[in-house]
Nucleic acid binder design. Structure first.
Lengths: 195, 195
DNA sequence: TCCATTTCTTGTCATTTGCTAAGAAGACTT
DNA sequence: AAGTCTTCTTAGCAAATGACAAGAAATGGA
């Protein structure tokens, strides 16, 4: 396996104003690994101790409802940082499960290394705040969409924004993320074809 | 009207490790005002330019769904800071409306003064991060509760945690916040009485 | 290539929940 | 204290959506 941090460095630089040297320095703390499909990064009731950068592949977050069903709360498409940052920074147990949907390549950094780099690399201090804001914002948008948009509108929005997800993730998972049953999504897709 | 900043100072000190002197200094930037029932603090499509401390009274946040109905997204019970902090810090239009449910006493600080105090009072810098984390966490908990708990369980949780809300806010607003119709909440309450 | 597994669609059925409307109870005003 | 307005409950009805099951299609592994 070719270990190249280019993608990670480019991604960090797209988020933060930081020199290539500093970014490379940060990357020393990231360890690359490969995960098979269905691998768990984090399970509910555990405190998140690692932040993952997803270089390639797809990941979902889900929680178990009262009937034992898995409800998808997030779908991640590379390149992106994947974590329950509330669990990570508040040091509290998560309620979500994070699992790969395909074979994936990750880079991970431990909580201790994140803390150390906050002190060692001033530019990196913005990272935590940015991850919190980004994920909060995403959850907020999702809540608003659930209230304002029909399931069909949510489907079309996701289709336009992340076609790659539809090519790599089962519709059952996507339907759950959209807040509907897989059979209902099938009906929506059927109606859309008749237009 | 008696202008006493005691409640505000105490509340800030309960959030942040800060001396009484520094806290008092911060309070110079807060202006007290009284608002009647049904007063709007912030309307959708506007950028939030003020952060409000609710000294007494009750406030709701709501968004308009596609049928024109008001869907309650938050109920605030004093003492608490009230704002769409994503709109406030990202300088982007909000999707929510913030409206008083009772006569209220507020203290407000402008965005410019918040920025100025971030520089002038080092201890205050944690404030923004804390507000984001607190509100993010609250939204996350609410999402999880919507998936895991029945409406009855959500009702009982709120009842135990904020009895004051039930004594001051119409059940119609509370039902909407719980994610159900007011008539459904009535059914739940009826069933609970038969136990 | 073939078999097994997963995924997707489709139809039927049942249940839940919201909508509407009406009346009772309560709160506020004058 | 009377009257108005809001709030809350209740009942009947309608509609939307999920559960279940069966079959088709696609995928992946041996």
């Amino acid at each position: 396996m070719m270990i190249s941090q280019d993608i990670l460095i480019k991604y960090i630089q797209s988020l933060l104003p930081i020199s290539s040297e500093k970014a490379s320095q940060l990357c020393i703390s990231f360890n690359q690994f490969e995960a098979e499909k269905n691998h768990f990064l984090l399970k509910e009731n555990n405190v998140s101790n690692e932040t993952f950068f997803l270089e390639s592949g797809f990941v979902r977050a889900f929680i178990i409802d009262r009937d034992g069903n898995e409800v998808t709360t997030n779908i991640f498409s590379a390149p992106i940082f994947v974590n329950d940052f509330l669990s990570f920074f508040k040091r509290q147990p998560t309620s979500e499960n994070f699992q790969t949907l395909t074979k994936c390549i990750f880079w991970k950094m431990s909580f201790e290394d994140v803390q150390r780099n906050f002190h060692a690399v001033p530019e990196f201090r913005e990272f935590g705040r940015m991850m919190l804001v980004t994920n909060y914002s995403h959850l907020n948008d999702r809540m608003i969409s659930m209230i304002r948009d029909t399931a069909e509108a949510r489907y079309l929005k996701l289709l336009n924004k992340h076609l790659d997800i539809f090519q790599n993730v089962p519709l059952k998972i996507i339907a759950s993320y959209l807040g509907i049953a897989d059979t209902s999504l099938s009906r929506i897709r059927k109606e859309l074809i008749n237009k």
